[in-house]
Design a protein around this nucleic acid. Structure first.
Length: 232
DNA sequence: AACCAGGACGTGA
DNA sequence: TCACGTCATGGT
């Protein structure tokens, strides 16, 4: 089986255009950013609070619809402004209240505080993938999103959408794990961080529109390459 | 009214 | 190692 990742990227980019990830609600409405924080073509501001916002948002979005995670991010924004130490020292019950719409709110509140403690101690240093993975609540996808979108480090985000899409396209075996797909893609493609960032956003977009759990193949630009062709 | 959503972790085999 | 249960809100 062949893994034409670059061809897939080209097709999705042509279909959907730049997505402007990671959405930064703290900058929503400012120059280059739309009302939901998306910023196609704009540079990611890389100050500590913006990086911490991305890390928190990535954690809040775990196995949760973005619309729900977004509410929690907005609530945190209105209060803590994503100062890591302030969040680390905040009352747990207070954080729980703010992040409730994101689901798993007790877990996420506790883990956000741990994330705050970590980032407060990090200062200006760039964390390693291993360091991020050692934080309770930060798994491979969250770590890669932080490295990619907050620090501009090239990482392929091999999330559930990517694994489902690639498997349906016949590019990888069914049931492939996160690390294996990440490695396969990164060994096959010489992408920089902006391209990996775009590819992940494009895959999410495509998976939401068409390659859902129950596929909606009408209008899918990948139909002619896909085993699901004609199935639905 | 089940099912799904931009996962991670603890447990037991 | 890996399969499975748990965590929880909100839209379709």
């Amino acid at each position: 089986m062949t893994l034409d990742f670059e061809g897939l990227y080209g097709t999705l980019f042509e279909a959907y255009g730049p997505r402007g990830w990671w959405p930064l609600l703290s900058l929503a409405g400012t120059a280059g950013y739309d009302a939901d924080g998306y910023h196609p073509g704009a540079d990611v501001a890389s100050d500590p609070s913006t990086r911490f916002e991305i890390a928190c948002a990535a954690l809040l979005a775990q196995n949760t619809a973005w619309t729900n995670a977004e509410r929690a991010v907005r609530a945190l924004l209105e209060r803590g402004q994503f100062d890591a130490r302030r969040l680390a020292d905040a009352e747990t019950s207070e954080i729980e209240k703010l992040v409730r719409p994101a689901g798993f709110f007790r877990q996420k509140a506790a883990r956000l505080k741990l994330l705050g403690r970590f980032f407060a101690g990090l200062a200006d240093r760039t964390p390693s993938r291993e360091e991020l993975l050692s934080i309770r609540g930060v798994g491979p996808e969250t770590a890669d999103c932080i490295l990619l979108y907050a620090y501009g480090i090239p990482e392929f985000v091999a999330d559930a959408y990517a694994r489902r899409l690639f498997a349906r396209l016949g590019m990888v075996e069914e049931g492939i794990g996160y690390e294996k797909l990440r490695t396969m893609v990164m060994e096959s493609a010489a992408f920089d961080a902006p391209d990996y960032g775009e590819s992940h956003a494009l895959i999410v977009e495509h998976a939401k529109r068409h390659c859902r759990a129950e596929p909606r193949c009408d209008g899918c630009v990948l139909r002619n390459r896909c085993a699901y062709r004609g199935a639905r």
